[in-house]
């Protein structure tokens, strides 16, 4: 557990000092929301369905940057070799990386939610608070999957380019569930109305967190 805390603290401190990942992710989220508003017609850019869709596109692609950076930053300066030599099992390393990525993604997500409210003329009300668990589940599922896939992508000559092609199709069920649940809650429905979709998100999160925990050693094994 202390190894977990040590890696997490290192990642958070690094990010507090450089801000590289979070700034890139926030900037990308803003750009995606702007692009979606431009891409939709005047009528289309209103309403909770479009807002929920835009928010989840932002989550998906800024999350991709976060997952890439989670391991990419370690590779660039050779830190990964140190991490792999350290007496830390891969599963703990995975959980620490997952926790750090979640923190950065949450920051980007908060920025995206605020912008979504402004761009799509929604209001800051309790509907947003009720969305918190949905977004948290969506982020956890994506981070659990994408950290794993980013490690896999690191083994290819194409490198980070591979990540979207692996992550997007697999993430689709969680994306569908997340968009639907968000649209339901933004529309003012009670939390229970989104329960069907929340169950799918929970299932996805459990599957990929457990799979990542068990399989991470295979994708990080002899790499340095």
């Amino acid at each position: 557990m202390s190894a977990f805390a040590a890696i997490l603290r290192k990642d958070l401190r690094l990010e507090l000092r450089s801000g590289e990942s979070t700034i890139a992710m926030v900037a990308l989220s803003i750009l995606i929301l702007v692009v979606v508003v431009f891409a939709l017609s005047q009528a289309g850019a209103r309403g909770t369905e479009a807002a929920a869709g835009a928010l989840w596109i932002a989550l998906l692609f800024s999350g991709m940057v976060g997952a890439t950076r989670a391991l990419g930053a370690e590779r660039e300066n050779g830190c990964i070799a140190g991490l792999l030599i350290a007496p830390v099992d891969r599963a703990t390393l995975y959980l620490a990386k997952l926790a750090a990525a979640l923190v950065f993604m949450a920051v980007a997500e908060i920025a995206a939610v605020i912008l979504m409210v402004l761009f799509f003329n929604l209001s800051f009300d309790s509907g947003l608070l009720r969305m918190v668990p949905i977004l948290a589940l969506g982020l956890l599922g994506f981070a659990a999957l994408a950290i794993m896939l980013a490690a896999i992508a690191g083994h290819t000559r194409l490198g980070d380019l591979t990540l979207p092609m692996l992550a997007v199709p697999i993430y689709v069920p969680a994306l569908i569930a997340g968009v639907k649940a968000s649209a339901v809650l933004l529309g003012g429905a009670p939390f229970g109305a989104a329960w069907t979709w929340i169950r799918i998100l929970i299932a996805f999160d459990v599957i990929y967190t457990v799979a990542g925990y068990l399989l991470f050693e295979h994708v990080m094994a002899e790499q340095a």
Partner: peptide, 15 residues
Amino acid sequence: VAAVLGIIAALDVPV
């Protein structure tokens, strides 16, 4: 790595 991806993708099918 490919083996892991094959497993991860198959886990997704029921969801």
